Computed example of a mutant assay.
Amino acid sequence: MDARSEKEKMLAGDLYVAFGEELFGERQRAKALCRRFNATTEEEMLERESVLRQLLGSCGLNPFVEPTFRCDYGYNIHIGDNFYANYDLIILDVCEVRIGHNCFIAPRVSIFTAGHPLDAPTRISGLEFGKPVTIGDNVWIGGHAVINPGVTIGNNVVIAAGAVVTKDVPDDVVVAGVPAKVIRQLGVA
């Protein structure tokens, strides 16, 4: 029998049950902080940043996130300096999401670390898992893009609007499509 808590299993990327008291309470905390953040006005920039810093695991200098913002736990999200996210960012952070410096995220981007088993009986049982997402420095993610669990995106990357990123992305490229594929190398004369 696995003696680890469901939270320990979740953070390790193993199958876990999300409906326990500890994880439910932590999701409720994140929902309350997201609600507070999303209720701020454009005149309350200091309050917005304060709530963001309470919610996230770590937050660099000059973060700017337009409401609305939603996440599962918050503490698994780490953003670098000069982070900008436009409207309606969703991050399902059952595992770590690490975002580098100077990253820009367009409206309605979704970053998912949560996954569900392909086997129907296992999925129906309530078990799920997560895989971390890492996004490098100087990345621009276009509107309505989706970043799937377990993906690592390199530095100086552009993710085209509407792309669905299912595999790792190397440095210095533009990716587009469903699933996303490299369509252009950047910085090459």
Rank of each mutant, 00 (worst) to 15 (best):
L46Q: 08
K7T: 04
I91Q: 09
V188W: 11
K31M: 00
D81G: 04
F112N: 08
T134C: 07
I135A: 07
G143N: 01
F24C: 04
L46C: 01
Y73M: 09
N155T: 07
M10Y: 06
T134K: 15
G20H: 12
R4Y: 01
G57K: 15
G74K: 02
N148V: 14
K31T: 03
I135V: 10
V151Q: 10
L61I: 13
I183Y: 01
H144F: 14
Q185E: 11
A85K: 00
L52N: 09
D81N: 04
N62R: 11
L33D: 04
N102R: 08
A114E: 05
V97Y: 07
C34E: 00
L46E: 05
G126T: 14
R29H: 08
K9S: 13
L56G: 10
A163E: 06
V146I: 03
I79T: 05
V173R: 10
L23E: 13
V17P: 14
L118N: 14
I183A: 02
V165K: 10
D14P: 15
D93M: 00
N156K: 13
C103K: 03
A114I: 13
G150R: 02
L89D: 06
I91E: 09
F69K: 08
I159Y: 06
A160P: 07
Y73Q: 08
G143F: 01
Q54A: 06
R98E: 13
A106W: 05
P179S: 15
A189D: 05
S50H: 07
D88H: 14
S125H: 11
D119H: 15
G100P: 06
N62S: 14
Q28V: 05
P67T: 07
G126W: 04
T166F: 08
F69V: 03
V169F: 03
R4N: 02
I90C: 14
E44V: 01
V165T: 07
F19H: 10
V182H: 15
V169Y: 12
I91D: 13
E44L: 12
I105R: 05
S5P: 14
I91T: 05
D14T: 11
S58I: 01
E47D: 09
E6L: 07
E22Q: 00
S50T: 09
R29K: 09
L55D: 14
I99G: 10
L46F: 01
V51I: 02
L118I: 15
M10L: 08
R36L: 08
V164L: 14
F69Q: 05
V165Y: 10
